[in-house]
Design a protein around this nucleic acid. Structure first.
Length: 309
DNA sequence: AATGATGACAACCGCACCTCT
DNA sequence: CAGAGGTGCGGTTGTCATCAT
């Protein structure tokens, strides 16, 4: 298929940042035509701009359009981007259709400059949304003397999780367990990993974006009474959430623990080789949103307190 | 205060695809 | 159906601001 040479190759065309005067001319021209552009190629000449039509289109669609939302991304927006990216990949334009008034270019830039780096710091591959290879964890920033083999295998099991959210939560469990250097806590984390992993494997369902957004909205997690760190019980919380969604009755931790065992018997049996701490003693605690990456002091603290650089 | 490093964002570039003739 | 024109998309680069030394 033939293609006309790109106007960017025309040396006489101005490039680089747009001036206020150019912006004004472009906006005025488009507004004069009812906000509609019939031909971007012809627009520069008609508007009196010494710019490539493509450049004009980019400037208008990404920055000058009146219906564009500018400024920082909210936690909800970031969470949604991560969720959508996990299922869509680098389909920025498709992702942008799910974020009201955000452009694909802005989302792409925000991903590359913020979210991508944060995921990497959390040990999550931003491309695959899987955990980074265990070798990287052992040899890299997460290396820790005396790390129990069970935790390393648990780290490897993260690859079985299907979403960034679940990986993030499981990673947190690992970090907490490692930081505590406490046998019961580590095993508790292992148990939770097994249960969370089992939930996904048993269902064979990749969570939809709405499912994950629903999960993101839940801020209550559980920790063992007296346990100094933060242990989240993803599978248990999920059961509680599902039951509470269907009936407005709070399910106790003990009940939910039993339900987890019923739902994922194989994995629970596997985890039963370990002296799992009783979940009946769990008490509610407030934790930041798992994908609240903009304000990631929580995660930063965990990483830095355990693995000082 | 000067300078280099780093981060954030705007813009460029080339390819793929769609539409029209 | 083929080719040309035009647009959309995603990767990459350039530029400016801020921070660290």
């Amino acid at each position: 298929m033939g293609r006309s040479p790109c106007c960017y190759h025309d040396a006489s065309m101005k490039k680089g940042p747009w001036t206020e005067e150019e912006d004004r001319m472009l906006v005025e021209h488009i507004q004069k035509h009812g906000g509609h552009v019939s031909s971007w190629r012809n627009l520069p000449k008609a508007a009196g701009l010494n710019r490539c039509g493509k450049s004009c289109r980019l400037r208008w669609t990404n920055y000058l359009r009146p219906d564009i939302k500018r400024g920082n991304f909210t936690d909800e927006e970031e969470s949604l981007i991560i969720t959508l990216h996990a299922s869509l990949g680098n389909k920025w334009s498709t992702i942008a259709t799910h974020l009201e008034r955000r452009t694909d270019n802005e989302i792409k830039n925000h991903w590359n400059t913020h979210i991508r780096k944060k995921l990497l710091r959390m040990g999550i591959d931003p491309v695959t949304h899987q955990n980074l290879p265990p070798d990287d964890i052992v040899n890299g920033a997460l290396a820790s003397p005396g790390l129990p083999e069970a935790l390393l295998s648990a780290a490897a099991s993260l690859a079985g999780l299907n979403s960034a959210l679940m990986q993030a939560q499981s990673l947190q469990l690992l970090l907490q367990a490692i930081s505590s250097n406490n046998g019961s806590a580590g095993l508790m984390a292992n148990y939770n990993l097994a249960a969370g992993n089992a939930m996904l494997n048993a269902s064979s369902i990749v969570p939809t974006s709405q499912d994950q957004m629903n999960l993101l909205s839940h801020a209550t997690y559980y920790r063992p009474a007296g346990y100094p760190g933060n242990i989240t019980s993803f599978a248990e919380q999920d059961v509680v959430q599902q039951l509470n969604a269907s009936a407005p009755v709070l399910v106790s931790s003990a009940e939910s623990a039993a339900l987890v065992s019923e739902s994922y018997p194989q994995e629970t049996v596997a985890a039963a080789d370990l002296p799992v701490q009783g979940v009946a003693s769990l008490e509610p605690m407030e934790m930041p949103s798992m994908c609240s990456l903009e304000d990631d002091a929580f995660w930063k603290d965990i990483l830095e307190s355990n693995f000082p650089l």
